[in-house]
Each structure stands twice: as C-alpha cells, then as structure tokens.
C-alpha cells in the first residue's frame, strides 16, 4: 500500500511522519506520474487558495477527479477539505467537487480565535479526539449521501461521502493516530475491492 500526500504546499511532512509511524509507505505527490502510483491520497493543511492554484498549474485537477471517480480514497484536512469541496475558493477558482459539501473558510475567525478541544468522534470510538482547529473551515451544506461524522458547536467538522473523507481539524499535528488509521483502513478496503493485494 502506498499513500500519497499532495505536495503543493502546507504541512506535508507532518502527514508523511504520521503515515510512517503507522507503518505505511507515504510518497509526496507533485506530478501526474506520482499520483498514478498511490492507492490513497491525503490533501494536507495549508492555504486552500495556494494549493488549488498550484495543483491547477501542475495539471493535476482532472487526474485527481479521475482517480476519485475511480474510487480511490482521498482525505482532505482543513485546507484540504476546502480543496475537495464544491465551494468557490477565490475569483474563478473552485474546489475539486469530489464531495457534495460546501464550506465556510475561517469560520471561527482569525488565528487569535484558533483553538484545540476534545470532541467525541463515533467512528474512532472513545476517548474523545483532541481536535486542532487553525483558522478552520466548517461544512455549511451537505448533499444527501454525505455522512456527518463529527460536530462542534452545531457545526459539521468531519464528514464522508463514499471514498472521500474530510476534517476541519488537523490529526497530523497530534500524536493520536486513530484518524490516520481510519483512513488507512479505507485504503485497505479499496485495494481489497479492486482485487489488489495489500502489500
């Protein structure tokens, strides 16, 4: 199993370290060639405007949409959640529309309002997860096939639709591997259902 981290901009190294500590091979994805090698993809935190512009200029938009439609698991954290959403990001730049959600950027305010808090997340079980919100977005609209997996103060902060997972917060900045393990399990299922061996 190889999981890619989209490496346009952002906290790429933290996701790579997490994958490594879960015993999974991670590679940095900057090109179409690298994208073809991976069985799952994480889009990290960073600036959503920057990440989207750079992936467009690198010609990765349609290959990414193609892999997603093909069933490959993709997980967007914070900025990554904005990138995979249907929201307008800036001027004429839209998210990839891989998941039927719209998001509000910087929903809790500026950096001075960034925070960390324990939130119970059903899919990973007890104890509650330490969620780190940094100028974080929230989900403002979900399509009918989207499952909301976590809420804070009434806002949806984690969701899933088929093979696409999103979180407003940053599991890669913690030492708690549970959300990464959950995503790794999604990739294992994808490989199994596509008759590929998990090696």
């Amino acid at each position: 199993m190889i999981i890619g981290v989209l490496s346009m901009q952002g906290d790429i190294r933290e996701h790579m370290n997490m994958l490594h500590s879960c015993g999974v091979e991670g590679i940095r994805v900057k090109t179409k060639e690298a994208l073809e090698k991976v069985n799952g993809l994480i889009i990290p935190g960073g600036e959503s405007t920057t990440i989207t512009r750079l992936l467009d200029s690198a010609g990765l938009r349609s290959p990414l949409i193609h892999r997603a439609n093909d069933g490959m698991p993709i997980w967007g954290t914070c900025a990554g959640m904005i990138v995979v959403s249907k929201s307008k990001i800036n001027d004429e730049v839209y998210g990839l529309g891989l998941i039927d959600i719209e998001v509000k950027r910087n929903a809790f305010g500026r950096q001075v309002d960034s925070f960390e808090v324990d939130i119970p997340l059903d899919l990973i079980g007890a104890p509650p997860y330490r969620c780190i919100f940094i100028r974080a977005p929230v989900i403002t609209r979900t399509g009918k096939n989207v499952r909301i997996l976590g809420k804070y103060n009434g806002f949806a902060i984690m969701a899933k639709e088929d093979n696409i997972l999103v979180s407003s917060f940053h599991p890669e900045l913690t030492n708690d591997k549970r959300v990464h393990r959950y995503f790794i399990d999604m990739v294992k299922e994808y490989l199994a259902s596509h008759g590929k061996s998990d090696t």
């Binding site: 490496s7 346009m8 901009q9 952002g10 906290d11 790429i12 190294r13 933290e14 935190g45 960073g46 600036e47 920057t50 914070c78 900025a79 950096q111 001075v112 309002d113 960034s114 925070f115 960390e116 808090v117 324990d118 780190i132 940094i134 100028r135 940053h170 900045l173």
Partner: peptide
C-alpha cells in the same frame, strides 16, 4: 476544555505556511 493560543496552535499554524511564499 477549549484552549486558545497554545504552543500546538502557534507551531501548528506556522506549519501551514511550509513550502509557501
């Protein structure tokens, strides 16, 4: 308990700038 301005929040934010201008 909700916490703001912690080291994790400061250092984590700086990490979001990486590979950027």
């Amino acid at each position: 308990m909700i916490e703001k301005g912690t080291w994790v929040i400061k250092d984590g934010f700086a990490n979001m700038f990486k590979n950027g201008v």
